[in-house]
Computed example of a mutant assay.
Amino acid sequence: MIERTLWHPVALAHAVGAQPVAAVLLGEELVLWRDGEGAAHAWADQCPHRGARFSLGRVTDGQLECPYHGWRFQAGGQCTHIPAVPGFTPGARHCARTFDTREAHGMLWVRLAAPEGPALPIHDLPAFAAEAEPRLRKTTSGPYLVQASAPRIIENFLDMAHFGYVHEGWLGSRERPEIPPYEVTPTLHGVKATGCRAWQPRSSIHAESGAQVEYTYEVTAPYAAVLTKQPEPGSTAIDGLWESIAMFVCPVTEETSVAWTRMAMNDFDSPDARLIAFQDTIFGQDQPILESQRPKRLPLAPDAEAHSAADRLSAAYRRYLKQSGIGFGVTA
């Protein structure tokens, strides 16, 4: 399954501290924990001894301790200590099952299997690059647990035509629902839409009047996308860097997901709570619609659902998923 070879977000990095945390990715139950050096790890949440959940255990002396019999495991997954037989040296059969783990953009990312070819990067857009870190403020909202498939959530994030109805008075207006034509092109790792324009009464927490706002949307992985907002007249841009919002989705099961929004903003004055509250409001308006959609899994057949010209990015996203061999959270 190609999805197992991709990097997926599973938790906010700061949420994994001194004690183990449970998570689920692609139906795989995980335990997330940090060793004595502070390095993050993601393992199968199952002790190789009697199958107890590691996430019910604890971290002791920088090692993960099983809650059932106190077996301890070091960072590489090897068992180092069995209290009931202290003189025994555990072997290869006593190892925990481990997965690749990385930290990026304030989150922990996990890959369940190594790809045969080059690995898809986690993210490489300018606003989120390392050199932009001190110039754009990074804030994350979520997690949002959603009874919807990951592709449905990403497609909704890419959709501007719902602004005037789902986000009326915020991101759109029923009186001005038109979406002018825009361009969609394939990229090395997804698809990109430029010249996306929509009239918005309140495009950000600072907006005091309506404006025609221009966005660029980019799908950077099957379950990740970024919108980049063109600076409005009179606003301050930083050396050509546009503010961006990323939607990162963890596919928990075929029909349930956890989502986060990662913001790269030219706003160092507003408190985190205010920035996050705005995103909470927007996602809170989307969630009941997402959970109402049928089928829950995104249909990829061209004639499965009706389309309009405003849906050209959605159609391109579906083609990209199909061409990439994605099968989790979709129907053929």
Rank of each mutant, 00 (worst) to 15 (best):
A15L: 09
L108F: 05
F248C: 12
C95A: 15
Q212W: 15
T220S: 15
H41Q: 09
G91C: 10
C196Y: 03
V21D: 08
S257N: 08
E103F: 01
V330L: 04
T194C: 04
F268R: 13
F157K: 00
P271M: 15
G284W: 00
S209C: 12
L171C: 10
E254N: 09
E155A: 04
R312H: 03
P295S: 06
W199S: 01
V21Y: 03
A22N: 13
I82Q: 07
A225D: 05
D100W: 13
Q293D: 08
P151E: 06
P177D: 02
T228W: 03
E28Y: 01
P20E: 12
G106Y: 03
I326T: 07
S173I: 12
L30W: 06
F54T: 11
D267H: 01
R111C: 04
G77K: 11
I238C: 13
E175S: 14
E218V: 01
L300C: 08
F328Q: 14
V16H: 06
I153K: 04
V85Y: 00
D35Q: 11
S257H: 08
A273E: 14
G195A: 08
T236S: 13
R135W: 12
P151S: 02
L227V: 05
A40G: 10
G195V: 06
S141W: 02
E243A: 07
H307R: 06
E29K: 12
P233K: 09
V191P: 13
A75K: 11
R34C: 05
P233V: 04
G234M: 12
E232K: 06
A52C: 09
I2V: 15
P126E: 05
V85E: 07
D45P: 09
W199V: 06
G164M: 04
G91A: 12
E168Y: 03
L298T: 04
W7D: 11
R312Y: 00
C250T: 09
T185L: 10
Q285N: 13
W199E: 02
D280G: 09
A211T: 15
V110L: 13
G164A: 03
H69W: 05
S244Q: 02
Q285D: 15
A332Q: 09
